[in-house]
Design a protein around this nucleic acid. Structure first.
Lengths: 170, 170
DNA sequence: GGCGCTTCGCTAACATGTTAGCCATATAAC
DNA sequence: GTTATATGGCTAACATGTTAGCGAAGCGCC
């Protein structure tokens, strides 16, 4: 039962299996327990992801944040400038390379993280108990196989010539 | 190596484990191989999800689509009206209950699905081979445990009184 | 019939996702 | 040195995600 939607997980299912969609569902199944905490502090999911990442590395460049937080560059531009306006981060151009930028936390953001972080950990423990530590362990292992595995490039199937579906009025 | 970003999977990692983020990554790891197919036909991810769902059930109401496709109601409103403009779906109010709506595919959309669907299946097989059928099987099993499991309600931790972080200039 | 309550889809306002492409800077080739 | 190329962050345009709340329609109760 999800907090946000109030929907008991899936009354109607799809017959076919769909891994990306399962990942989406599973993500939401977890996230809906963290979201209230994050929004309570006036942050968005992405803003929290970014703060947490900077907290790990002291400072990061936008490219690195994109990679670590799974945020595309054009999105990040907006998120960072909003966070700058909120007084959570600072952006400084690098001396050596005028293209690059360094993103750091402000003291205010550090205090926020110091207060928010432990609550996330606490909620995580609650969830781990509810799911069962074995399942959580199993999840980490199988997800690592998906993400960290060394695979050759996956071939892309050939696509048929493009048809103008939108114009087709038949 | 992801098609979209061109980034070899994760050069910098986070020390802490983060399941929601792992799900996000894993989802992208798969989806980036399907996205080119979907966009080739002028559809978005969500539009394709919806067409595929309607294809299963013949007809659906918006609520049901929201649940099946993991799309929130306000998003769906927009997606559906765009799809209506594109001539892919029709929306009809129910006679018995004037609040409710029935969404159906147009013949054009059916042709599109008939052409697109097999390509997705084909690409899926390629991916399954690359990942290894055992891993895929393992994924389905563990994801089912996460999603379909009967769990009691997960308690929400107590939150501290709200502080006005944004106004705090210290 | 009137009243409170719920459900359903919707709008509004804002944040983010997604694609394409621009511009300045840096780097490599010549 | 000058040119070509690559890189990093950015803008623009559109689609979707997210929260709050509205208005009409159904439902139960009196």
């Amino acid at each position: 039962m999800c907090i946000r939607t109030g929907i008991a997980t899936m009354s109607r299912k799809l017959a076919y299996r769909n891994l990306p969609q399962l990942f989406l569902r599973a993500r939401e199944e977890l996230l809906c327990h963290f979201r209230p905490i994050i929004t309570h502090f006036g942050l968005t999911e992405q803003q929290w992801r970014i703060l947490r990442a900077i907290g790990e590395y002291e400072q990061l460049e936008p490219r690195e944040i994109c990679e670590i937080c799974q945020i595309l560059s054009p999105s990040l531009t907006g998120v960072l400038s909003r966070m700058e306006d909120m007084g959570l981060v600072t952006r400084t151009r690098m001396e050596e390379d005028q293209r690059r930028v360094i993103v750091r936390m402000t003291p205010k953001a550090e205090k926020l993280v110091a207060e928010l972080g432990p609550l996330i950990v606490e909620q995580y423990k609650v969830i781990e108990q509810a799911f069962g530590p074995e399942l959580i362990q199993e999840l980490y292992e199988v997800m690592d196989k998906v993400i960290a595995a060394e695979r050759g490039p996956i071939p892309q199937i050939k696509l048929p010539p493009r048809k103008n579906w939108l114009a087709d009025e038949s």
